[in-house]
């Protein structure tokens, strides 16, 4: 039995331990916003927040998530009540196919919590662990800059 705290919800899962966190979030909990692409920790598609920090969930064992607060893209906003970072990505069209977008948004969210007023270069470095195969990078950087401005307004 594994107990996880995901998106403000506690769940007990009757599963074997030799599973990755990404796999369990997707297949046992239906949180398919957790995208698995490279399965090697290089592309950042599977990024989730663990105690507020971005983590490649494809490299974590599910048990390593126990006792921690896990947040996926499903946990930060709803279609009627989007997170400011999600709004900014839509407004700046920071995606094309959008497969990688949940990972980018979660990475951006953790980054902006620490650096609310970043430069373009700082955003590029902070996003360097997320790969966009469509190559929407200029739009993504603009989205994160816009999100930063929105969050500063809220603060």
């Amino acid at each position: 039995m594994v107990n996880l705290h995901v998106n403000s919800r506690n769940v007990d899962l009757d599963i074997k331990p030799h599973r990755t966190l990404a796999d369990v979030l997707r297949t046992e909990m239906g949180l398919i916003g957790v995208r698995v692409s490279c399965s090697e920790g290089e592309c950042g598609s599977c990024t989730v927040l663990v105690d507020g920090r971005p983590c490649t969930s494809c490299l974590m064992l599910v048990n390593q998530g126990e006792g921690k607060s896990i947040v996926t893209i499903e946990g930060i906003g709803t279609p009627d009540d989007l997170d400011p970072v999600q709004e900014a990505f839509i407004e700046e069209q920071g995606f094309q196919c959008a497969f990688c977008t949940p990972g980018f948004i979660l990475t951006a969210k953790a980054f902006l919590a620490e650096n609310p007023n970043p430069t373009h270069d700082e955003v590029s470095v902070a996003m360097s662990g997320n790969i966009c195969r469509c190559g929407a990078y200029p739009y993504i950087v603009r989205s994160v800059m816009r999100a930063a401005a929105k969050l500063r307004e809220f603060a």
Partner: peptide
């Protein structure tokens, strides 16, 4: 080393 979200692990 690696990427920001892997350095956390």
């Amino acid at each position: 080393m690696c990427t920001p979200q892997t350095r956390t692990i």
